[in-house]
Each structure stands twice: as structure tokens, then as C-alpha cells.
Nucleic acid binder design. Structure first.
Lengths: 93, 93
DNA sequence: AAATTTGGTTTATAAAATAAACCGCTTTAT
DNA sequence: ATAAAGCGGTTTATTTTATAAACCAAATTT
């Protein structure tokens, strides 16, 4: 039984990655809505994904308002796919 | 995005359930070998699965030696299947 | 210009996973 | 027969993780 990457084996981080896998980029507010998480929790988990090199986080502006956008990296994509493969071994898919 | 049952969203508990889904019953020693876990960790996680009603744990003897065997319950089976369905929403399967 | 909202971050708390220490019983070696 | 080592676990302590609460600066609304 393969190890399940602990960075991905977390509901909120997995949800974020799942969204980012299907979309060119997504901003903080959108991710918060989709995942129904609190801002604090999301902030912490984005940091972890970012520190792991699985996503990039870019701070910009839209008019005068700040906007934090996230994208999955190649490394993140690969890790996600490997995680899915590993999980299959547990789920009997 | 559906909630992921926190009792199953744990590598070791999921591994145990995965094994028990495919086998009539399994004993402590076998589960320990297959999951490559420590006895302490396994003991704690079996308790949690048992408290949740997902498995039954039976203590018996083989000659003079104690033997702890585990079986998944109907409730456990159902929970596992629902967990798999919920996960699919994250994995894009 | 005070109060509220937006878009977050930082810090504190609760819960979880894991390992280390321990325990009773059995077997083996002396 | 007795000490030492092994087996099958459990209990307790430690570390990590997840989550929420408190906070902050800038912008907007009243």
C-alpha cells in the first residue's frame, strides 16, 4: 500500500487542488466560496500548498482592491495525479 | 463538494477498512503487517473504527495465545462506499 | 468622519496521528 | 525453577494538523 501524500490528504487542500486542476487560475474569494471554508483556514492551507511547491500564489490588484490568485504548478499536477493513483489502491477502483 | 467522513479520511484507518472490505475477517497481526503500522497506532485506530461502529473487534484464543480479529460491519461498508463516492467528486474520476 | 465591509494574516485552541513506554502472558534458555 | 526474551497488545505522552477566533489595513458606505 502506497503512502498517501500528507500534503494532499487533507479535505480542504485536496478541494483546492481539485479546483485548480480544472481551471487556469482561481482567486482567494472564489476558492473560499467553492470550498465553503473560513478565510483563516484557507489562508493557512494555501500557504502549505505553496510551501510544498504545489501552487503559486500571486498578489495583484483589480482597481484598488487586492486580489490573490492561485495556480497549480507542474509539480502540483504531478503530485495530485500520483495521489489519485495511490488512493485507487485503497478504494478498489 | 461533499464532506469527507473524517473517520475514514485517515491513511491508516482507510487502509484497514480497505483490507476488511475484501476479506471476511482479519486479525491484529495481519493488519499490522499489511499496513506497516506500529502496534500502538493500529490499536488506537481500530478503537476509533470500532467506536464509530464501522468494525467489530473480537478477542479470542488460538491455543494459549490471544487473537484479536476484526470485521467490517454493514454500517462500515456503507460508510466506506459513501466515502468513495464523495472522494470521486474531488478526484475527477 | 465614523462605521462597515472586504480581503486577507496571525495567533490560539482543539483534535488527530504517531510513537514511546508499559503490561500480562508465554516461550525459551540456563 | 528462574531469568530473560518475545508476542500481542494497551495506555499515555508527544508532535502535528486542522480549524477557528482575533486581528489588521485598505476601501467603501452612511
Amino acid at each position: 500500500m502506497k503512502e498517501l501524500d500528507p500534503i494532499l490528504h487533507s479535505q480542504l487542500r485536496l478541494a483546492v487542488m481539485s479546483i485548480l486542476m480544472n481551471v487556469e487560475e482561481a482567486d482567494f474569494v472564489y476558492l473560499k466560496e467553492q470550498t465553503e471554508s473560513t478565510a483563516g483556514n484557507l489562508s493557512v492551507q494555501l500557504d502549505k500548498l505553496s510551501s510544498a511547491g504545489y501552487i503559486t500564489v500571486t498578489k495583484g490588484f483589480v482597481g484598488k482592491k487586492t486580489r490573490t490568485t492561485c495556480q497549480v504548478t507542474d509539480q502540483g499536477r504531478k503530485a495530485f495525479e500520483q495521489y489519485v493513483e495511490a488512493l485507487k489502491g485503497y478504494l478498489n477502483l
